[in-house]
Simulated assay, not measured.
Amino acid sequence: MDLQKGQKLKLSELSPSGKVTVHVAVQMRDGEADTTCFGVDAEGKLSDDRYFIFYNQLRSPEGAIVMESGNDGTTFSMDLDNLPDTIQKLVITVAADGCLMRDIASGIISLTGGALSADYTFSGDQFNQERALILCELYKKDHIWRYSVVSSGFNGGLDALLAYFGGEVAQPQNPAPVPVPPPVVPKVNLSKISLKKSGDSHKIDLHKNSGEIHVNLNWNAGKRGLFRGGAIDLDLACMYRLKNGKKGVIQALGNAFGSATSEPFILLDQDDRSGNSVGGENMYFKRPEQIEFAVVFAYIYDGVPNWRSTDAAVLLQQQGAPDIEIRIDNPNSQERFCVLASLSGSSGHLEVKREDRFFSGHRQVDDYYHFGFRWVAGHK
């Protein structure tokens, strides 16, 4: 069914189970847009920042809200009956990044429960100087979950939305001490660096930002035709060379998962063969200061090599530093191996560079980056 601005409905009309999805697709004429979900209390405030679902926090603690982003938009999978009683409303928003809401070429919100769906379409013609929108709300009234199309413009961006709901953007440095402790306000780190083009890079200061680097690979296994005929097996891996000259490969193939407590101090946590794991695959560089050079790559072990259909993305995280995002969005390559990033260590820094290079196999990756391994057949 098609909905109008201001229209309301009971969610039981779509899904008696309380499980629904909200899909938001926004095409911008210029810039980008970030879609988020605020889980607020009866006062309309973000009293628990774990229920602010956005690009740095993709799920609520119990998994009742899970966010997935891909080339066709952002999807929130919701199990409303599994939310704590403190969460009385879920607010879906979209905020501009380098543009205004009037730059929206087209947009749609699709609420789905079971076999039924309700859609609302919108465009930038309805707005002027606004930098964010409150798109819709799922709220509880008289113990019944309901849905409302809001589509209301908001003058500020994502940080202003966060403040509106009672949160605060975390600052990179601690503020100066004050004699009286301020009220407790949820603080959220909105910083993110997207390496969008091959050769884009960012330096991590290992003196300032110490500790492990967490590399997460996640992809969508449930909404593309590619996966209906059998789940794809997309693997995270790396080739490394330490400053002491030792080198090797970390990957599920051959059970070379590495170690967190001994050299190379690089650990791969699991082999997610379907992409159904909410956490995806994770690699931890426990002592990044020991890296001389490494390449982080993903390869399609099983399935048709179609990178666009995977909606895959890699996120590099380190406490005290902005998250670094690299999306696999090259639509042309039919090769199975994609080198996502290189890590180059020197003088207390680690430079992360987007590679965006595709190869047919391990040996071709090795030949290009000159590690000099001897290769034999392996399996998992």
Rank of each mutant, 00 (worst) to 15 (best):
L11S: 07
M78C: 12
L111I: 04
D30F: 10
G73S: 10
V278S: 12
G199Q: 09
G378A: 15
K286V: 13
R29W: 02
P16M: 03
R59G: 03
R224E: 15
K10Q: 12
N71P: 04
L340G: 11
Q7K: 14
S262T: 14
W219A: 01
D103I: 08
G211H: 01
A132T: 05
G166E: 08
S210K: 15
K223Y: 08
C37L: 15
G114N: 09
R336Q: 01
R308D: 14
E281Y: 09
G275N: 07
V304T: 13
D41T: 00
A377P: 01
A170L: 14
P322K: 00
R327S: 15
S77K: 13
V178H: 02
V184Y: 05
Q173W: 11
A252H: 07
K246S: 14
Y368L: 12
K192L: 15
E68I: 06
D233L: 09
G348W: 09
G372E: 11
L315I: 15
H379S: 12
V278K: 14
D235R: 01
K380M: 10
L11I: 15
Y164D: 07
G199P: 08
R357Y: 08
D103Q: 07
Q251W: 09
Y299C: 04
A115D: 15
Y55I: 08
E62R: 04
I232W: 01
D79N: 03
S360V: 12
A256M: 09
Q317Y: 02
G107C: 00
I108A: 12
E351N: 13
M1C: 11
C136D: 01
M28A: 05
F122W: 12
K223G: 10
I92C: 05
E13T: 13
N218A: 12
A42Y: 04
G303A: 08
A294G: 09
A132R: 04
Y51W: 07
C37I: 10
L3R: 01
S60V: 07
S152H: 06
